Simulated assay, not measured.
Amino acid sequence: MRIKELNLYPVKSLRGIPLDRATLGVRGLAYDRNWMVVDQVGRFVTQRQMPGMARVTVRLEEDWLVLEHPEAQPLAIALARRDQPRLTTYVWDDACQALDEGEEASRWLTAVLGDLRGSALRLVRFDDAHRRPVESRYLQGEEAHTAFADGYPFLIASQASLDALNRELQQKVLVPLPMNRFRPNIVIEGVSAFAEDGWNEVMAQEGQYRFGLRKPCQRCKITTINQANGTIEVPGEPLQTLIQMKTQPLRPGAYFGQNATLLTGEGEVIAVGETLHAK
């Protein structure tokens, strides 16, 4: 099997960036979920509340994070800056230390997305000095931490699993979905559908990096949002179909992909086309 896609999401719940290669870190691909949008009390905001976030595109330049929207001039954030005010932010039940990217970013986001129940939006950056541990009960002796991802530093999915889901959707006379509905970091091809659910580890052919697959990814409303335009065309799908497929027979709900940690290989480069092995 080999790597078909690599995807980076610098700002949680904004549009992703397809990559040919990326540097691996304990917290994920370099810059993955390093920023997020929060409300005025620091609570994370995602496409679950604001589907229009899918329309904000993201670019990483040598010195800048650049956000773009069809109805605004681009917003540029300096990558090297570290003198911003600190604040506490919240992802689910985790309190995370962050840096506030300032009033210009707040005005830009609120202008293009609107306010959230009367609250202006802010852009924050993960504080590199902060450690947000992964839930230990699913780990197997390793230590792991992440930035602003929902809970794990990596999400791994397979093309065959998406193909199987799309066959079921087409039987319902529904349009096949692209992989970006599931926002994975690493997409694998050359395996059978949902083979990833039986793996404990995935590693490079030459052994330069290893991932531990630790928890099936339960899916949410974001999978129902068209990532090109921020609209929900078929409410409830593909969640209803995934539930019917029972991809995790012992777990109620819709599951697709595996949450993963980096076991070895911090600082190594991962690239599309590389051969992988699983066990």
Rank of each mutant, 00 (worst) to 15 (best):
H277S: 15
E61P: 08
G257V: 05
T231F: 06
E101R: 00
I232H: 06
Q84V: 01
R125G: 00
V91G: 01
D32K: 04
R107D: 14
D150Q: 10
L75S: 05
Q84C: 10
Q84A: 15
L155V: 08
R21Q: 15
A22W: 01
K279Y: 10
V234H: 11
S106Y: 00
W199R: 02
L109M: 13
E71W: 13
A160C: 10
G265T: 12
L169P: 05
I270P: 04
I222Q: 07
L169Y: 05
I270A: 00
R132W: 14
Y31H: 13
Q159R: 07
S106V: 00
P235Y: 06
E168R: 12
R125F: 00
D115M: 13
P153I: 09
V26H: 12
G118D: 09
T23L: 10
F44T: 04
E104Q: 13
A98R: 00
L263Y: 05
A254M: 07
L87R: 12
K246V: 07
R59T: 15
D197N: 15
Y9A: 01
A147D: 02
R55F: 06
L75T: 02
H145M: 10
V91D: 01
L75F: 06
L250P: 02
V269F: 00
Q170N: 12
R82E: 09
P235K: 01
L263C: 12
E68F: 09
R117Y: 11
P10E: 05
P10Q: 01
I156M: 04
V187K: 01
F154P: 01
A54P: 02
V56N: 09
P238V: 04
E104Y: 09
E135R: 11
A72N: 10
R137L: 11
Q208D: 15
Y255M: 11
E201F: 11
L24V: 13
Q258L: 12
F182C: 06
V45C: 04
P252K: 07
G198W: 07
Q47K: 05
I156V: 10
